[in-house]
C-alpha cells in the first residue's frame, strides 16, 4: 500500500462510523520500490491530497524525514521537494500490517501490499 492510496482510504462505510478518516497505519514491513519520477504528476496531484494526513502517515511509519508539514508556495519549482514527495507518495510501500478505523477501532489487514477493506453484511450501514 502506497501512502497516496492511504490518503484516499476511509472506513466510513462501517455502520456507525461518520468520517472514518484518516486510518491509522500499523506497519510491520515497509519497502521502498523505485518508480519513475514524473514531476508534472506530483505537482498536479498534491492539491488533490490531504497533505497533513500524508505527512502524519509518513511520520508514523518512519519515512517522514525532510518532508515539510505544510506545502510551501511555489512548491512546483522546488525539485528537491517534488522528489521527496514522489518518494513518500509512490515509493514507500507498506507490505504487511494493518489499518485501524479511528472511530470504531476495526482493523483492516494489509497483506502483500494490499489492504483488505472488505466488510461483512452485518458491518455495513
Amino acid at each position: 500500500m502506497k501512502l497516496i492510496t492511504h490518503n484516499m482510504l476511509t472506513s466510513k462505510c462501517l455502520k456507525g462510523v461518520v468520517t472514518g478518516y484518516p486510518l491509522a497505519i500499523h506497519a510491520t514491513d515497509v519497502k521502498i520500490n523505485e518508480v519513475d519520477f514524473n514531476p508534472e504528476f506530483v505537482t498536479r496531484i498534491i492539491p488533490k491530497l490531504d497533505w497533513e494526513v500524508l505527512w502524519k502517515a509518513a511520520q508514523s511509519i518512519g519515512h517522514g524525514e525532510g518532508l515539510p508539514q505544510v506545502i510551501q508556495p511555489k512548491y512546483e519549482e522546488d525539485s528537491e521537494f517534488l522528489k521527496k514527495a514522489h518518494r513518500v507518495l509512490l515509493e514507500v510501500e507498506v507490505e504487511e500490517g494493518y489499518l485501524t478505523c479511528p472511530e470504531s477501532g476495526r482493523q483492516f489487514p494489509i497483506t502483500k501490499g494490499i489492504p483488505n477493506m472488505l466488510l461483512t453484511e452485518a458491518e455495513v450501514q
Binding site: Y21, M117, L118
Partner: peptide, 11 residues
Amino acid sequence: VRADVLHVPLC
C-alpha cells in the same frame, strides 16, 4: 485495494 463496489472505502 480489496473492496466491494457497494462499499468502496475511498473518500
